[in-house]
Design a binder for these strands. Structure first.
Lengths: 301, 301
DNA sequence: CGCAGGTAGTTGACAAAGTCAACTACCTGC
DNA sequence: GCAGGTAGTTGACTTTGTCAACTACCTGCG
């Protein structure tokens, strides 16, 4: 915890400096940083109200009012009358759009300059890392989506599974199993019969699941995981849903999966999808004895 | 590129808001954000000069002077005389240390509050992601170190290798090989004879290398990589050096490695360590034909 | 030595940025 | 139709930051 707090504080100091460097006059325009932010919001919203901008950016209402008057004097914005006749929705004029475009281009160039030295892989890392930070400290709202697997995904899954299950005391043997399962998936991949889905949030892998052909018209769901920071968003259910739908379309008669009694949140997801337990057995594969469970789901079309 | 620029801009907007939320009075203290930053710098430096603080934080000299006068009036700092009698080095008084400690505690609590909802894994992700961002846009100075492997590292290596070599057109077959090599390493790991090292920078994997027993007193170096954003820091050389030293101590007579002619920067590292090419052959294992090379190094003790 | 040109730090005068409370005009619901 | 609210504005103000001129000192060179 302390480490994380220290890291975030160090980052804030670093970023404050790096943003603060922009300073008083935003990139040589004659706008302050606040004015630039306001202009950005106006340009990226549908006829916003002053109150909305003020709340959005955490500014004083009077301050916003004055800045808007300045923008109006510059001919950048026009103010209408809303349904509610107190409100005066803001719209950019042609001149305002031009001013914003110029500012936007300058910002873009400035930002591009800062990351010019990075190669494509670095940029990818940066995007992912920024997304992760936003997702983690920004709390809830970052959206997520599901895609099929790409190069490297399977091993990232193996690594994450290994790390996430470490606290259960499942160490080396389970890690090796992860490697075998993922490598085998890649080696024996049967397009149309098998698939791996990755949930992404803020550019980072938020969870994943695999479907493999277990023979005899049975599709086996494997390696489901959802990152701790992405839990409670319905990602697990969506991944399993994706998997079941694919299995149905691929013509499997039944789905099967193997899990453990202690993994309660995963069990809830399987239950919700209609899976039922068909077998329970204690095994010693991961070192300590653990109770494994086999679940199945009939896929009557 | 555009994606990266957009991501960084979005992040800056997000972070500006999140930092700006602290706003005028820093956490209910009667300090402004600037004053708080200044106090932090004073507390974390050895008798700094006003000019140093001013340069460090990018502030106006006159402004700093006035804030310092205020701190002095509050009895928080004492100002001495340096060798250079123009300078007036700043030191915290007992009261100043107390004031800083109070502020520091409040900041810590505030930051901790923001990440209180995160589990240990998320915090780790956050630290790593913050480190990545700092490293990538902050440029140079972040330190790095080498450690031996932990749970999950091998598959992270497999994933990164797969992604980094994708641009060379080496796709599925090479990815499968990565999985096989790393899984086999874990399965057959011989402590004392084999090892895997990971270079970390800012909490992120910056590179890695493996040493495996190839039989017949030969140690084989495998899966060397350095992340693009961590190149040019000597990490590759340090990893190979670590590997060679371990091999020497483990009593291997010779080291061997297999690489490709197009991987020029890796070749330079091997050359610098004293490796020489003993064999060259075109192979088709990764799809396209490529020229592979075997390098060796005699380990005369 | 002494002087030109520099740096550390301060100060006065000022401008910019932001805050607060009071105000008008309007809306909503009882 | 009126109490209590919201959208937006305005005057008066404080805080924050900037600029240029200043003192006191240092460094290096003829």
């Amino acid at each position: 915890m302390d480490e994380a707090v220290a890291a975030l504080r160090a980052f804030t100091r670093f970023y404050t400096r790096s943003v603060g460097a922009l300073g008083a006059h935003y990139l040589d325009s004659d706008l302050s940083l606040t004015e630039a932010r306001l202009l950005y919001e106006i340009a990226n919203a549908e006829a916003p109200l002053a109150a909305a901008l003020q709340a959005e950016l955490g500014l004083d209402a009077g301050y916003v009012s004055r800045i808007l008057r300045r923008f109006q004097a510059l001919g950048w914005i026009a103010r209408g009358r809303g349904e509610d006749r107190r409100s005066r929705p803001i719209s950019l004029t042609e001149a305002g759009r031009a001013a914003f475009a110029a500012l936007d281009a300058r910002t873009k160039a400035d930002v591009a300059g800062r990351i010019a030295a990075l190669g494509p892989a670095d940029r990818e890392t940066l995007v992912a890392a920024l997304g992760a930070v936003t997702g983690l400290i920004g709390g809830g709202a970052a959206p997520w989506h599901i895609r099929t697997f790409r190069t490297g995904d399977l091993f990232t899954i193996a690594a994450r599974q290994s790390i996430l299950y470490e606290p259960y005391g499942w160490t080396r043997p389970m890690e090796i199993l992860q490697g075998e399962v993922t490598t085998a998936f890649l080696r024996d991949f049967k397009p149309g019969r098998e698939q791996c889905w990755v949930a992404e949030r803020a550019g980072l892998m938020a969870g994943a699941v695999m479907l493999v052909d277990a023979g005899g018209d049975v599709g086996q769901l494997r390696l489901l995981h959802v990152e701790p920071w992405a839990r409670g968003l319905g990602i697990g259910g969506a991944l399993v849903g994706e998997c079941v739908q694919f299995a149905r379309e691929a013509g499997y008669a039944r789905m099967r999966l193997w899990t453990h009694t202690i993994l309660t949140s995963a069990r809830r997801i399987y239950e919700a999808e209609g899976f039922t337990i068909v077998e329970t057995a204690v095994h010693h594969e991961f070192g300590e004895p653990v109770q494994g469970e086999t679940w199945e789901l009939e896929l009557t079309p």
